[in-house]
Structures are given as structure tokens and as C-alpha cells.
């Protein structure tokens, strides 16, 4: 069986995983480690050539986790053919305009959607919530933020840059709704940091 396609259209299409089974497993484990140990950097997407607009780690997460069961919301900068066609072709994921219906959201730096627009889950089903994959310029050069909570041994410091002003107030409101709330993965190139809703963030001084 061969897939016949118009070359002009396939030019837009980025390649998927070289080894779908094992690359998906490795990417998932990086994501699992990131959310189980908030604040510690993990790596995914090494060697991937993502479509324009996506970073290797966010593309790896998309290939590993998205499918027909997961409505995906794209921030405006990412609503370009290169991204939408790759996600449709490799993942078969439906794209949604409504952030409140999204299982996953891919966010480009600068688009800065408000966290409370996404699905926080329901009282009896807090798992029905959005996981945001948020791309930032880097994870080491921003103002220090201290995280505490499950998965953190005491406290851990992260320094992502490129998040909008007032972001950590939004995060505090998200955390305050626990067990409701969105989960966040900060991505920079092939590095990622997990911030599950259970993580409390404090700016400034330790503690």
C-alpha cells in the first residue's frame, strides 16, 4: 500500500518519530519524570525535525501523547499549515478552537493565553483537564521561582524566561483550585520542566 500525496502539500509535512514505538515510550517517560519530579529538567525530541513553530520537545510530546481522543488547542502563532498538517497526519488529533474543551494545548511564547480559559476538570473528575505544553525561550535565565509540593524534595528552583507578567499569580490561582486545575509543561528546545497543578510556586526568597 502506498500513500499518494501531492508533493506541494507534503513539502509542509514534518517527519514523525524515526522509531514510533520506542521514541514514544522515551518521550512519555521524560514527560512522566517531569510531572512526577516538578522542576527537574528532562529531555525529549532529540534528533526530531519539528514543523516550523514547534520545538523538538513539544513535537515529541505531541507525537507521543496526542491522538483522535485528544482535542488539541493551538495558540494563534501555531495555527499554521506546517503545524496543523503534521498534527493531523501523524497524530490524527482533532483541533479545537475552544480551550475549555482541549485535552492538550500547545502554546508559543508571546501568545500567553490565560490559564483559567482551559479545562480545569470537574469536582468528581478532576482528571478531565487540559495539559498545556508551553514553549519558552529558555529554562535557566529567568527570575527564580521556588516550587514545593508532591514530587519535590523540600524545594526546587526553576528559572524559565518569557512567561507573561502576572503569570505566577495565575499559577497561584490555578494551584488554589486543587484538585482542579490545569497541568503545565514548560518546554525550551529539547528540555522540559513539569508543573502539575499540585505544585506551589513562590517568587523571590526561599520558602
Amino acid at each position: 500500500m502506498s500513500i499518494v500525496a501531492n508533493p506541494a502539500e507534503t513539502a509542509e509535512l514534518a517527519r514523525g518519530f524515526g522509531d514510533p514505538v520506542f521514541d514514544a515510550q522515551r518521550s512519555f517517560r521524560a514527560l512522566l519524570d517531569a510531572l512526577a519530579r516538578p522542576g527537574l529538567q528532562q529531555h525529549a525530541g532529540d534528533g526530531l525535525a519539528p514543523p516550523a513553530g514547534l520545538m523538538p520537545a513539544s513535537y515529541a510530546i505531541a507525537l507521543a501523547m496526542f491522538d483522535a481522543d485528544t482535542p488539541v488547542w493551538l495558540s494563534p502563532v501555531l495555527r499554521i499549515t506546517a503545524v496543523t498538517e503534521s498534527l493531523r497526519f501523524h497524530c490524527g488529533a482533532p483541533l479545537t478552537e475552544d480551550p475549555g474543551r482541549a485535552a492538550f494545548a500547545l502554546v508559543a511564547a508571546g501568545d500567553d493565553p490565560p490559564l483559567d480559559g482551559f479545562a480545569p476538570g470537574e469536582d468528581r473528575y478532576p482528571d478531565r483537564s487540559t495539559t498545556l505544553i508551553w514553549q519558552v525561550p529558555d529554562l535557566d535565565r529567568g527570575a527564580p521561582i521556588h516550587l514545593t509540593g508532591p514530587g519535590v524534595n523540600g524545594s526546587v528552583t526553576i528559572q524559565p524566561s518569557g512567561l507573561p507578567s502576572g503569570f505566577w499569580n495565575q499559577w497561584a490561582a490555578n494551584h488554589a483550585r486543587y484538585p482542579l486545575g490545569v497541568d503545565l509543561v514548560l518546554v525550551s528546545v529539547d528540555a522540559l520542566i513539569g508543573l502539575p497543578r499540585s505544585a506551589a510556586a513562590h517568587a523571590g526568597l526561599e520558602g
Binding site: P20, V21, Q25, L35, T70, P126, D127, T131
Partner: peptide, 24 residues
Amino acid sequence: DEQTKRMIRRAILKAVAIPGYQVP
């Protein structure tokens, strides 16, 4: 199969984010 794994993996990620909550 891979789709089943993705479904289970997504459940595991939510379970980790909400410690002690039972994800269907």
C-alpha cells in the same frame, strides 16, 4: 497496541498530577 498505551499513559500523567485520585 500503541493507542492503548497512549490512553493509559495519559491516565498515568493525570494520576501523578492529582496524587491519590483514581483516574478512570
